[in-house]
Simulated assay, not measured.
Amino acid sequence: MNTTGTPSPAPTATPLRTSITPGQPWLDTNGQLIQAHGGSILHVDGVFYWYGENKEHTTGGTDVWHWGVRCYRSSDLYNWEDCGVIIPPVLDDPDSPLHPAQKMDRPHIIFNPKTGQYVCWLKVMQPDDTQKSTVLVAEQLLGPYRIVRTNLQPLGMSAGDFDLVVDPSDGKAYFIFERVHSELIIADLTDDATNVTGYYSTHFPHPHPPFVREAPAYFRRGHLHYLFTSGTTGYFPNPSEVAVATTYHGPWRVLGDPHPDDDSRTSYRSQICSVFRHPHKKDLYIALADRWLGDRPVDARKAALMFETAFASDTPSEHFRRYEQEDPEVFAMPDTSRAGYVWLPVRFDGEMAYLDWHDEWRIEDYQEANSPEEGRPGGA
């Protein structure tokens, strides 16, 4: 049984995987498409846990936006066992942030060493286009989780895509988020990691989409802090950007597009959601990305121009209504229940971080760490 109370699908003879194949369908050990979108990986007691949005019922033809947060576990990052829905949808309360019709996105879970709890933040888009946060805590990674904050507007701001970071040296936590359609904010979290303290810094200001940076994905390599971000074009993919700093609060320097060989200017038709450092490899960082539109053809330049024109006007909603009427197939809600994943290793050249395309790649091809320190976030 999974945590929704319904029987899990009967196991099938799914062949064991021995590599990562970006963009190809990824099935769990039951032979079902993995549903862990916009999420990340945690490594706990020698086991990898991959969690994210459960989109199994989000086919584009209904008002179902999510079906909770789902989690999988693995010993090799190739083959994933379904652990079920660890934060289930709330079906009987339309006002709950966990109701399937609520636009809940991008769960991020951290372990807080100061409280011994797992803390999960969720972004929930509101009908008036503001975006608010819901915060939950649990004693175990797989739950049960309980809501401790809803309708939170950190620092009084509309908080969009985000990442959570815990400093490995002192346990201090940070909330990195898009101040919707404006700039990126890096805010200190309280000791329990369920709210902001009030101390924050601002970065990458832009006048409007598609230039505003969203989907921040943080990682640290040695003394350098990194951020991958995307532009703001809805489900349409766009060029990523990488920036570097020597402290969490910057100043941040933009280094450029980590996908320089992608002529389509779509980040390989994907959007990065997080970066995971392998704990047993010397210098292996894996960028996790979602291919939200699947195989749907994408004209990235046209999409960016539409967003730029709409948001540069005083009436962006009217522009988008016209676009939808003129090209309904392009603007139709995608079937994200079948959205794919693009996982790629990060290649470093000096300070610059690149993501080269691989049809197939293997964890075993990367050098083992010589010591535990080399596998930690601050290790070189």
Rank of each mutant, 00 (worst) to 15 (best):
K282T: 07
P328V: 05
F236T: 07
I34G: 06
G375W: 01
M306D: 15
M352G: 07
I176E: 02
G378Q: 13
N151A: 11
T59K: 05
D163G: 07
P107R: 04
D28T: 11
V242R: 07
W252S: 06
M333Q: 14
D163S: 07
F211Q: 15
T14V: 15
E360D: 14
I110E: 01
G198E: 05
S274N: 07
P279I: 03
R70A: 04
Q35E: 08
D161R: 08
G84R: 08
A332I: 12
I185N: 04
R149H: 12
G234Q: 06
W292E: 05
E139I: 04
N151C: 04
S40P: 05
D327E: 08
S169I: 10
S201L: 06
W50Q: 01
R179P: 00
D191Y: 08
D257P: 09
P297E: 02
T336E: 14
E53K: 03
L142M: 15
G52Q: 06
K302A: 14
T247N: 14
F162E: 04
V44T: 00
I186C: 10
Y49H: 11
G350Y: 08
D261Q: 13
P279S: 06
F348S: 04
D82M: 13
T150M: 03
A215W: 00
H278W: 01
T229A: 13
G23F: 01
L16F: 11
G68Q: 00
P25T: 01
Q153M: 15
R265T: 12
